[in-house]
Amino acid sequence: MPEAAPRPEPVPPERVPSSRDAYRVALVVPRQGPAGMFGPSCRAAAHLAAEEVDTAGGVAGRPVHLVEVDAGAAPAEVARTVGALVDRGEVDAVAGWHLSSVRQALAPAVAGRVPYVYATAYEGGEVGDGVVCTGELPGEQVVSALRFLRREFGWRRWLVVGDDYVWPRATAHQAARVLRTAGVDLTAPLWVPLGSTDERVWERVVAELDRQADPRGGSAVPDGVLMLLVGSDGVRFNRAFHRAGLDARLVRFSPFMDETMLLGGGPETSRGLFASAGWFAGLTSAAALEFSAGFARHYERLVGVGGLAVPSPGTMAESTYLGLRWLADVGRRAVPGPREVDAARSAWSWDTPHGTVRLDGGRAHHRVHLAAATGAEFEVLGDVTADSTAG
């Protein structure tokens, strides 16, 4: 009979310093679920931001202490965890990259008691007290990119495939309404349960796309697929898309794609795949190169690579970084509370690795780039920011 394995020693709870000792931020990033693949990169970027803030003197003189919360749990569970930290006075702010479904549960739990920086590209419309959204909006990411692709390549008909929750549905609705006047059509949306691991689900989606793209069907033949899929869902879709040979007939565009997803899908799945975001690792400005070097150092320290190359920092990582840097920027002179954050989101600008980001009336305005996938990397094709307001 084999010897029983020893029982693991209990892990003592993390000691959270007092507010006199540190500026304590609940770092809410996913470590499981369809977005869990972004967690290691988001954590590395957050720790880089904290290090840089501390080197510059901290938040109103206090060093940053990150209290990590898994945003990959059910939204209600995340809200309970963070709400309890706020109730006990153990955090001074909440920040991180996570899905809109988590934000919708979390904002009421925080209830304007501490600042909440939502550092994710999202659908827009968040007006909660003390909540600042620093990510890109559909007009900048989807509308600008599809206008550019129509002008440069003539692609105007797009089938929509998205996860069935608030961000994909609201983004598709808003983009379709605006793009209609630019002669770009978003049609026949297919909604998939978030986190679908059954490969048959993706095979059925691809089969339906194949049917709609058949020129013998009598309707206008689409040019491509607008992907509104998160993390591992996008990876599974790209694999099924490639297996069916649809990448020879349809291009794909995603405003929620980074290098982590390209690695997950494999280089063979990147044919005809485009993405838009403020940040791509292929940017070569001094600020971008400095961020990439710092990210690599912290990724090795936090995650370890076991002899493998450190992955490129994706847009989810850079978004996490710039959200924390914004919070520290507001707190240069005094510890920022919800009132100071509400005032700053009306008009503020700060430097990021992909350029200056400006907050105006609660809306973050980014310089947005369009990129084409080449293997496991993105090649930046150009700045499409002007197309977000083009007629």
Rank of each mutant, 00 (worst) to 15 (best):
W348Y: 13
T356I: 07
A176H: 03
E290F: 00
R169V: 11
V161P: 04
D387W: 14
D351M: 08
V117C: 07
H47D: 14
H65W: 03
G154D: 11
A93K: 03
R211S: 11
F237H: 08
A281H: 10
P189G: 12
G278R: 01
L289D: 09
V205S: 04
E126R: 06
A176I: 04
G218A: 10
V368W: 01
V303T: 14
L99M: 15
M257V: 07
L359N: 05
Q32M: 12
R333I: 01
V117A: 11
G355A: 11
P193V: 10
W158A: 10
E126L: 12
A286P: 01
A50L: 07
E9P: 00
V335M: 10
V28C: 10
R339C: 07
H47W: 10
G125L: 08
V335T: 15
V303L: 02
V142W: 01
F295K: 05
L289W: 00
D163N: 15
G218I: 05
G362V: 03
E377S: 14
P8H: 10
A344C: 04
C42I: 01
L186G: 10
S144Y: 00
R211V: 07
A46T: 02
R80K: 11
V11D: 05
E203N: 13
H365G: 03
W348Q: 02
V64F: 02
V94L: 04
L66W: 01
S312N: 13
A71Q: 06
